[in-house]
């Protein structure tokens, strides 16, 4: 099989680490060669953050480059737009519709382009927009946004539902498993 390329993007502090941890352990359990690449340090402080997850028979580069991403999972609307140039022509963006203003917007130096995803959709980019924040609240905590988005991703990947649940059980504290299972189901089904 060819290598499948995922990107998890968002704003530093949004909790994308659990998502990449979950994906990593799931894909290793499925027998794939896997590379997960993160940037730590300065950019974590409210900046734009990106994690690359690549899997297949043999993975070399830790990075996903221009026109290579199969799926971009975005925790924030603007961040989904920031990495569109990484998307393959048949790739898909799974975008949380949450809006977090970056500093140039806060200071008034720039405007937040609220219709940005619609404008990309008009240009033929495949976008699956989802209000993951509301679904996470429904599941019991806004902190499950990452699992809601993983549930959505699961609709597209060729990995059985129960394998995802097993990975959640492996990576989440026992008392939070039920809530995260619910969040996953909401992302998958809604």
């Amino acid at each position: 099989m060819r290598t499948i390329n995922l990107m998890i993007v968002g704003v530093g502090g949004q909790g994308s680490l659990l998502a990449s941890k979950l994906l990593g352990s799931l894909l290793v359990a499925e027998g794939y060669d896997v590379k997960v690449s993160e940037v730590h340090g300065m950019s974590q402080r409210g900046g734009s953050v990106v994690t690359y997850v690549r899997y297949g028979d043999k993975v070399y580069s830790p990075l996903v480059d221009l026109g290579e991403a199969d799926y971009i999972i975005s925790f924030e609307k603007l961040e989904a737009a920031r990495y569109v140039d990484r998307l393959r022509p048949d790739g898909k963006i799974i975008a949380n519709t949450q809006q977090i203003d970056p500093m140039p917007v806060i200071t008034g130096a720039a405007e937040y382009p609220e219709d940005i995803l619609d404008r990309y959709a008009e240009k033929g980019v495949q976008i699956d927009a989802i209000d993951a924040l509301s679904l996470a609240e429904k599941a019991g905590s806004v902190k499950t946004v990452n699992i809601v988005l993983m549930g959505r991703l699961a609709r597209y990947l060729d990995i059985p539902y129960e394998k995802w649940i097993a990975a959640i059980k492996q990576n989440v504290k026992e008392r939070f498993v039920a809530m995260n299972q619910e969040a996953f189901a909401l992302g998958y089904n809604s």
């Binding site: 402080r45 409210g46 998307l87 048949d90």
Partner: peptide, 21 residues
Amino acid sequence: EQPKEACAESLPIPVRPPVMC
């Protein structure tokens, strides 16, 4: 040759530099 991108055109968006929390 570089891989073909889903969208050849990039719309302008504000940068998101790291900030004090």
